[in-house]
Write a protein that binds this DNA or RNA. Sequence first.
DNA 1: AGTGAAAAGTTTAGCCG
DNA 2: CGGCTAAACTTTTCACT
Lengths: 164, 164
Amino acid sequence: MITELDDIDIRILDLLQHDARTTTKEMADKLGLTVTPVSVRIRKLEEAGYIKRYVAILDKDKIEKSLIAFTSIQLREHSQDALRSFEKAVTKMREVMECHRLTGRTDFLLKIAIRDMNEYNNFLMDKLAKLANIGSVQSHFVLSEGKAETAYPLTLNIQKEKGK
Amino acid sequence: MITELDDIDIRILDLLQHDARTTTKEMADKLGLTVTPVSVRIRKLEEAGYIKRYVAILDKDKIEKSLIAFTSIQLREHSQDALRSFEKAVTKMREVMECHRLTGRTDFLLKIAIRDMNEYNNFLMDKLAKLANIGSVQSHFVLSEGKAETAYPLTLNIQKEKGK
DNA sequence: AGTGAAAAGTTTAGCCG
DNA sequence: CGGCTAAACTTTTCACT
């Protein structure tokens, strides 16, 4: 099993989180290795859960989900049951891509992907507003995406040591 | 070139956005086709820009980016230059995974991935607060992720017609 | 841990219905 | 537009260092 990542593991993770189609051969060349150790390391990283999944990122405009809303929700009641049942209900909705429970006044932040404002209105009226225990809802729409990364910032061990 | 997606295209996109490692053979079996048309359709979907990229999703806790913050920013000045230069500066920061320009009182919503509160504080002090034109900053931390999808909700044409 | 070569699996291309 | 077959490429496994 993996105890700690070395720089080669970190570089493999970084290559894959930017382009999951990078071949083991390409990685091997960049890392100055052959394909075998790269392949073995990837399998170990997958098994140990460092890599959760591989996904394709689609163009939201092309598939007609041009409207992205960040919707913040405050509940009226904050018992464990109330929080759980809200979360359970909302995560089932297909339009809700993300549901984050937050610190501060806002209880939940949802990321909603939908066709247009008309459909967002329907979503609010027919689905969200029908949930029990909703206190207040604020909708913020995305005007432009300056950055939309799925990759986390990774730091090599050598660089970390430099910083010390 | 692709004019409109048929249901087979949509199902291919949906399979890939949930698991980019699905082989053409598996898709072909699910779709009742052979690998050739699946392979051809995927290439066309890539070329037409429906599929933007393939990425690996990492486990943030395992790579020590356990703290996720949604940070909302109001600027003092809202000229085009002011907005642009803020966005340009902030998208360069590695900790900033997403930068959305929003409607409403909040100008920008940032998603920040970082090790812990201590490093978030350093990020705020040393990087974010040093930018010109910052009006106010509110930090909201993620307590738990109820849902974190990268896949958009897709609808088959048959289902759409049912809805009519 | 890594190398090199062989085996298995996957994707792509050509040709035909 | 899809099926079939062959070629190219990629990933995985094995013996060896």
